Simulated assay, not measured.
Amino acid sequence: MKTCLIVDDSRVVRKVAGRIIQDLKFDVREAGDGAEALTACREDMPDAILLDWSMPVMNGLDFLRALRRERGGDKPTVVFCSTENDAEYIGEAMRSGANEFIMKPFDADIIESKFAEAGLL
């Protein structure tokens, strides 16, 4: 079974996204910030990462750049998730290694669609 790491400082967002992604037949793990997520990836690299942008300790963009430098860090499909809809933000995320980008708030259809577009389903 594929694994997905959900990285968001909101416990509620992690739980809601986790239920949606479990329904897509993924094992789900959670991290509350980028530093925690980087540690989790070093222990066991996931197949997919649903990544929030704005978090304490290490934000999503800094995490993504660090992830892509790690051994095996080029493998996870990263779906960036943010309330920012500015083209500059989206472009920065994609240039930094994101595979897809979704806006908050999201629902099951949006996540399923983006995971399908990214080749995860």
Rank of each mutant, 00 (worst) to 15 (best):
K2Q: 07
L5N: 08
V7H: 00
D8L: 13
R14I: 02
V16T: 15
I21Q: 08
Q22R: 15
D23M: 14
R29I: 11
E30T: 09
D33Y: 13
A35C: 09
A35F: 15
E36T: 15
E36H: 06
A37L: 03
A40N: 04
A40P: 03
A40V: 08
C41Q: 02
R42N: 11
M45N: 03
P46F: 05
A48H: 13
I49A: 01
L50Y: 07
L51Y: 03
M55N: 00
D62Y: 06
F63Q: 00
F63G: 01
L64A: 05
R65L: 05
R68S: 11
R69L: 15
R69A: 13
G72D: 06
G72R: 05
G73K: 03
D74F: 05
V79Y: 05
T83C: 09
D86H: 10
A87M: 07
A87L: 11
E88T: 15
E92Y: 05
E92A: 08
A93R: 01
R95G: 10
A98D: 08
A98R: 06
E100M: 14
E100G: 12
I102P: 04
I102D: 09
P105V: 07
P105G: 15
F106C: 06
D107R: 12
A108F: 04
D109V: 13
E112Y: 10
E112R: 14
E112I: 14
S113T: 11
K114N: 09
F115Y: 07
A118Y: 12
A118N: 08
G119F: 12
L120M: 15
